[in-house]
Structures are given as structure tokens and as C-alpha cells.
Amino acid sequence: MDMPDMPVNVPVDDPNADTEWNDILRKHGIIPEKPKDPEPIIQEALLEAAQRAHENRLEDKDLDELAELEDEEDEAFLEQYRRQRLAELSRLEKKSVYGQVYGLQKPDYARDVTDESSKAFVMVNLTASLGTNVEARILTELWREAAVKFGDVKFCQIRADLCIEGYPERNTPTILVYKDGDIKRQVVTLAHLNGPRTNMRDIERLLLEVGAITENDVRLKRKDSDEEINGRNKPTVEEEDDDDDWD
């Protein structure tokens, strides 16, 4: 009479030990493979991170700052990097065909926004009719600054109730982002950005999120601190006259 197969208990002192006996057991699947040592993987990741940091050490430098590093960096490398920066700036300049905020009229909306978005990103500011809307005034000011800085993106503006009859004042300002004939993002009021403290950093972050600009865009390299930007934007908007209101 055949005896049924019975599990065999193999004595193992330390399954993780590098012994000939354990190698035999692993080969026959009696004990699992020894876990890989994570240390080499960690060290490799750290080396790669350090290498990337070294390669990108000049990313936040403008042309003047690059010139100041001539005694610290390899001259040939600096020259190559400077030429890359100039080439990128030249490319962006050629694409910067807008450079201002375009006032919209409802009959021309499809042509000036929807159709135009097949060529570039189009950002529409549905603004308020009342000068007491602080967020609308802030965005109007930032819209001007962004339009000049990112001339390859078309920035437009129209009073919300003239564009959409009965559009609630409480929903202004509203940002509509168009690309390839469709609305890619809708931002109702500045609450989803930074409220009354919204500044150019927040507008740039929105442009990054929708893909209108890329993270390595040289125009994002700024020396200003967030505090300086906030301090500059807020009084400028509050002191501004109501000339920006649409009739």
C-alpha cells in the first residue's frame, strides 16, 4: 500500500544565511529566495538624484547670473547652456504673437476664442461689472501681467453678464481655459487659486496644470519672493481706479 505524500520538515537554522545548504533548498523551492539587499538600490537612487541636481544646477539662473558664474563653472559648459537659454527665449519670442489682453464681444466669441484655441491656449476672464468685486479687480491686473509675460497664450476678457445672460455676480471672476475648441478647465472665483491673495505664482501654476506652459519654461525663473509678489500686487489693485470696469 502506497503511503500518501507527506510534507517533509527540513531543518533550517537561518533561511537568509548565505550557505550552500540554503542555496540547495532555494533551488528546489523549499525556502523562498533571499530578499535582495536594498542598500545598493538606495545608493544608486541617491547617486542618480545627485547627478540630476548637478545637471540642473543652473536651471534657476538668468543670463546675468550665468555670467557671474564664469569663475566657478566650466567655460565651455556655461557657453553651451547660455546658448540653449538664448535659443529657447528666441523660440518663445517668435511664438509670442499676442502679448496683451483682448476684449471680447459676444458675437465674435466663437471666432476669437473657440476657433483661436486650435492655434494656442486661450484664457478667458469672465469679469464682474461692479468695482467692489476685489477678486475681479485682482484678476484683471494679473491678466495684464500674464498676457505680457506669456505672449504665446491668448488672454481675453469680457464682462460675465454680457457674455452669459444672467450670470451670477457671485461667480465672478470665472476663468475659462480653451484648447482645440473645448473648455479644458473652469475656475469659478479665485477661491480655488489663492483668494484675494492670488498672485502671478498662482496664475503660473494654473498655466502649468492645464499644459499651457511647461515646468522648464525659462519665463518661470523669478528672483521675486512670494512675499514681495503679494505685497506688490495687493496695493496695486486696491489703489487702482475703476477705469477697468466695463461699461
Score class of each variant (00 low, 15 high):
Val8Met: 09
Asn9Phe: 11
Asn9Trp: 08
Pro11Arg: 12
Asp13Phe: 11
Asn16Thr: 15
Asp18Gly: 04
Ile24Gly: 01
Gly29Glu: 07
Lys34Asn: 10
Pro38Lys: 13
Gln43Lys: 15
Glu44Phe: 03
Gln51Asn: 09
His54Asn: 13
Asp62Trp: 09
Leu63Ala: 15
Asp71Gly: 05
Phe77Tyr: 08
Arg82Pro: 02
Arg83Met: 13
Gln84Lys: 14
Arg85Ala: 08
Ser90Asp: 15
Ser90Gly: 08
Ser90Pro: 00
Val101Ile: 06
Asp108Lys: 15
Val122Tyr: 01
Val122Pro: 00
Val124His: 06
Thr127Cys: 08
Leu130Thr: 11
Thr132Leu: 11
Leu142Lys: 01
Arg144Gly: 04
Ala146Asn: 04
Ala146Lys: 00
Lys149Pro: 02
Phe150Arg: 10
Phe155Asp: 03
Arg159Pro: 00
Leu162Ser: 12
Ile164Cys: 04
Glu165Lys: 15
Glu165Ser: 14
Glu169His: 09
Thr172Glu: 00
Ile175Leu: 15
Val177Asp: 02
Gly181Leu: 08
Ile183Tyr: 06
Arg185Ser: 14
Gln186Pro: 00
Val188Cys: 05
Leu193Cys: 03
Arg197Cys: 06
Thr198Leu: 01
Met200Ala: 03
Asp202Ile: 01
Val218Pro: 07
Leu220Phe: 07
Lys221Asp: 04
Pro235Asn: 04
Thr236Cys: 08
Asp242Gly: 01
